[in-house]
């Protein structure tokens, strides 16, 4: 009995001492912070941050060589927690999303030739620069769909379509598209020029009926000069854009899409006190009126941005449709809080 206990203890001790020495010799510093952070990162290893794995990203976060904004997949809560753990600043950023700058479904476009090759966009691009009549349009063979780790982009009728709910803006589709027509925009930007064609209007008209023909009508109607032209293509300057959608309404081919809305025309009623606030705020200069007198909206100039509606404190501005039908009633006045009655009666 004793021998058994002694033998076992002996073997155990030898093993323990051996391991103790080994743990010193082969010691590896593992930062406990890294483990904590590693728990919070998504763990999908999608590579959007530029690192091979989420663990690698966690290590870089702790070391301070990477920022928490680099991972677009993490939720804001995870980001906030990591910021707490690492004692760094955290600011909420707008969630970005991928946008396919093309509306060329099979119904809209002409083809250059019948393509009988490998079913991949990158491969099709090698054959006479792609089979779509427009050299800049979506090829619709699904390279983006296959590369997306979040099942957020699909090819429908020959055009790639992004599911904004699932999209994490990891950027994989942006990299794989051989025509570089997918971009990352913030979800706050609701108006997009969904065309990438740099061809002159005449050529565009011949190959696609929803392409930008560079007619510049959008530039004319934009109240804040948020549209510029480069290479025969309209581009919205997102920093200036007020999301009014006037450009989308003015576009003759429908190549500008307004995902916000609906947008209505402002109409001022008798409650107007003439405070002139709306007239001053109107970016299109569509409201006119004297101080203390009823103001009037010029329907033709109104860009339907609803800014006046937001600023009016007198329930004086309603939003109506093109027939004059009221769609949104004027904003109720802010109720002033009554001052609290003094406690107990004043003696």
């Amino acid at each position: 009995m004793l021998t058994a206990i002694l033998t076992l203890t002996g073997v155990g001790l030898v093993a323990a001492i051996g391991l103790g020495i080994a743990s010193r010799v082969f010691a590896v510093q593992v930062d406990p912070l890294v483990e904590q952070v590693a728990e919070l990162v998504p763990g999908v290893n999608c590579g959007a941050c530029g690192n091979a794995s989420c663990n690698a990203y966690a290590e870089m976060l702790v070391a301070g060589t990477a920022g928490i904004d680099e991972c677009t997949v993490m939720s804001d809560e995870a980001r906030a927690k990591i910021a707490e753990i690492l004692n760094i600043e955290f600011t909420k950023t707008d969630k970005p999303t991928a946008v396919v700058l093309c509306q060329g479904t099979t119904a809209h476009i002409q083809l250059k030739y019948h393509y009988d090759g490998v079913p991949s966009c990158r491969a099709a691009q090698l054959v006479a620069e792609g089979y779509t009549g427009c050299d800049y349009g979506c090829l619709g063979l699904g390279d983006c769909e296959r590369v997306c780790p979040f099942d957020a982009i699909h090819v429908v009728d020959g055009l790639a379509v992004v599911d904004e709910e699932k999209c994490t803006a990891c950027g994989k589709c942006v990299d794989v598209c051989p025509r570089n027509i997918i971009e990352l925009h913030t979800t706050n930007q609701r108006v997009h020029v969904l065309c990438s064609s740099q061809d002159k209007g005449k050529i565009v008209r011949g190959v696609c009926d929803v392409g930008c023909i560079a007619c510049r009508k959008c530039v004319k109607v934009c109240p804040v000069e948020a549209i510029e032209f480069k290479d025969n293509l309209a581009r919205i300057i997102t920093e200036k854009c007020i999301q009014c959608g006037a450009c989308a309404r003015a576009c003759p081919t429908g190549s500008i899409l307004d995902q916000g809305g609906p947008h209505y025309i402002a109409k001022i009623n008798d409650n107007c006190t003439g405070c002139t606030l709306c007239a001053r705020k109107c970016p299109a200069g569509a409201i006119s009126g004297e101080k203390k007198l009823l103001h009037v909206v010029d329907e033709k100039k109104c860009v339907r941005c609803h800014v006046c509606y937001d600023v009016c404190n007198f329930e004086a501005i309603a939003l109506v449709d093109e027939q004059g039908q009221e769609m949104i009633a004027p904003k109720p006045k802010k109720k002033k809080k009554k001052a609290a009655a003094p406690q107990g009666a004043a003696s």
Partner: peptide
């Protein structure tokens, strides 16, 4: 255990 330590290092 020993092998684990060596490999980790």
């Amino acid at each position: 255990q020993f092998v684990e330590m060596v490999i980790q290092k």
